[in-house]
């Protein structure tokens, strides 16, 4: 994407380009249509040329067990027993949510390592990444992962390279049930409304859209059968926001700390100017001119 489209940039305090008017995009993941086939995981791996370790089966369907620097999306399988005593298999495709107010970007200390595009995509520029892991500390969704190979942070790019040339993300392209769709954020909300209406008619009274306001909305949204209990979906946070600890650390504390340091130096300087140095008046110890007795004994003129 063009640099004119970068509307937010990590560790940058001046305004970013804002003349272009670009529509926001969104990926909508309909958990009620997902069959857990993991085609999206494979497509992601293929398009991005990532090959994670094959790993081993640990007794659940999740594979790999967690997101990694080489697995940017992951199907999480949750078994939920509903009040009627029936099993519901709640499968959620996990990955970066592309927050409108990204915690990773707020926390990142390296200028330009994390950017937000005008269309809403949050992208990591690994060439600027210093590997500190602050993005992990800042993320409300526990998404970024640091590679042990190169100590750089990685996560879903929402296929920013494909979207830039008018293609949909690879996972969307491959999804066999149409559970993942992609388009303008507006269209995706409208599409979700239709799905939610359908789900409500079929008995899922609490069906709804997951587009959490605490992070300004996201550019990856979910249709959930149980939108009132997002935690059921392998711990999807019900009200995510940038942690107040991160807000304090990366917010007011930065200018206040610099101010405190500057003020201390100035206080010292003006103290020196007004009160002045504290000097010791050295003892004027009487200098004793002891005459060397031998001097008197030598009188060369005497015979």
């Amino acid at each position: 994407m063009a640099t004119q489209d970068i509307i937010a940039r990590s560790a940058t305090t001046t305004p970013m380009p804002s003349v272009r008017q670009v529509g926001e995009v969104a990926k909508l993941i309909d958990t009620s249509k997902c069959i857990g086939c993991k085609a999206c995981q494979v497509a992601c791996s293929e398009w991005n040329d990532l090959r994670d370790e094959v790993g081993s089966n640990v007794g659940v369907y999740d594979n790999p067990r967690d997101l990694t620097a080489d697995s940017w999306t992951l199907m999480r399988f949750a078994e939920h027993e509903n009040p009627a005593g029936n099993l519901e298999w709640l499968i959620r495709k996990d990955g970066c949510m592309h927050c409108a107010e990204p915690g990773c970007l707020a926390a990142c200390p390296s200028p330009g390592a994390i950017v937000k595009y005008a269309n809403g995509i949050v992208d990591f520029n690994q060439d600027h990444c210093i590997g500190c892991g602050y993005c992990i500390t800042g993320c409300p969704f526990d998404i970024p992962r640091i590679s042990q190979k190169d100590h750089k942070a990685y996560k879903c790019t929402l296929c920013s390279d494909r979207v830039a040339v008018g293609l949909e993300p690879a996972c969307v392209k491959t999804c066999p049930t149409g559970a993942i769709v992609f388009g303008s954020k507006e269209d995706m909300i409208e599409h979700a409304d239709g799905r939610i209406k359908d789900l409500k008619e079929r008995g899922f009274e609490q069906a709804g859209l997951y587009d959490p306001a605490g992070v300004g909305g996201t550019h990856v949204m979910y249709v959930l059968h149980h939108a009132d209990q997002p935690e059921l979906y392998s711990g999807l946070p019900s009200d995510p926001s940038i942690s107040p600890l991160v807000g304090l650390w990366k917010g007011v504390s930065k200018p206040l700390a610099l101010l405190a340091m500057g003020a201390t130096v100035l206080l010292g300087f003006f103290h020196y100017v007004r009160v002045g140095p504290n000097r010791v008046e050295e003892d004027l110890e009487p200098v004793v001119h002891e005459v060397d007795p031998s001097v008197h004994e030598v009188e060369p003129k005497k015979p």
Binding site: M261, T264, V265, G268, H271, Y272, P277, N278, R279, V280
Partner: peptide, 12 residues
């Protein structure tokens, strides 16, 4: 910073 200033302030 206070420590450094004290060293400048208190000669010796």
């Amino acid at each position: 910073l206070v420590h450094i200033y004290a060293a400048i302030w208190i000669k010796g």
